[in-house]
Amino acid sequence: MRRERSLLLACLAGVWLALMSQAAPAQSWFERLVMPGDLIRGHAKLEKDCSNCHLSFSQGAQSGLCRDCHKEAAKNLDDGTGFHGRAPEMRGQECRHCHTDHIGRDLPALPFHHSADWRQTRPFDHSKTAFSLKGAHDKAACKACHAPSEPASAAPTACIGCHRGDDPHKGKLGESCDTCHSPGDWLREVAFDHDITRFPLIGQHVLVPCEECHPDATYRGTEVDCAACHGRDDVHRGAFGKGCDQCHGTSSIKGARLKLRKP
């Protein structure tokens, strides 16, 4: 019995040495045999050679190989920027602690989404990214801003990146939507500093709805003289010209200030 066991071990050792002597091809065949599952779609091209992501007998080397490919995340960790750099728990953490793989082509390596499977659900603190979720953004679905086939860092951070199709101004007011709009209530919480225009709002003008002076969301080229809006209400029928403010104030059209000319 002892002799047969020794012979069996010798045969196994011979097979192993034969495989190892073939170097990379034999190793790839063996690793493919024990691979736990297909890589995600983004890593599919790396699947032919396990050494792209693993070093034999060294789990600790895997994160270094991750950083070699994911240079932006590596830079964030080094500079203290981005999500990886801002989150203190990321420092010294193995990449595989958060990023899964060998889970199939159609599953994400970032398991920060709602799922019935607890292995695919993990809380994510968006305040540590370059775009903190405020107001209605906190209720938006992840896929509304993050395309599954793109890295998380590719998501737009400027308002117009997501809201270009919803822009009622058709780009006429530029792309800095947050200058006037709030993420709490995009339509109701609107604050525009009219003092930066040629027509600061004072008196009763403060209470006038925007569309009264800007029909069809047209802003550029709007007339600023009184007659442009009040011409139809002019009781003088144009007899005193268009400079209504020479006699009338903005608090009330009534009670005109008469300016008598000196003889």
Rank of each mutant, 00 (worst) to 15 (best):
A109P: 00
C145F: 08
C53R: 01
K143N: 02
A147F: 03
L201P: 00
H230G: 10
C177P: 07
L12R: 06
G37H: 05
A23G: 11
C66Y: 01
R5F: 03
C177R: 00
D117T: 06
G255T: 06
R2V: 01
V15W: 12
C210S: 12
R261K: 13
S115N: 05
L258K: 09
R86Q: 10
T81G: 07
K48W: 12
K242D: 15
G135N: 13
R2L: 02
S28H: 14
P215A: 12
G231F: 09
H169K: 12
R119C: 08
S58A: 12
P209R: 01
D245R: 02
L77T: 03
L207M: 05
V190Y: 11
L110F: 05
K134W: 14
L8K: 05
H137T: 09
K71L: 03
L8P: 02
K128W: 02
A155I: 03
D68F: 02
T129V: 08
L173R: 07
H114K: 07
T100L: 11
V208T: 07
T250D: 06
S149V: 02
P111M: 03
A10M: 06
T222F: 14
A61R: 06
V224D: 10
P168Y: 14
A116G: 10
P25N: 03
K242G: 09
A23E: 11
H97A: 15
D117R: 01
E212R: 10
Q27N: 08
P215G: 10
P168R: 11
D233N: 13
E223A: 14
A147T: 00
D166C: 15
A217V: 13
G249A: 10
R3S: 04
R237W: 14
I160G: 04
W186H: 13
H102M: 08
L201E: 00
T218K: 14
D216K: 15
Q22C: 06
L46G: 02
Y219H: 15
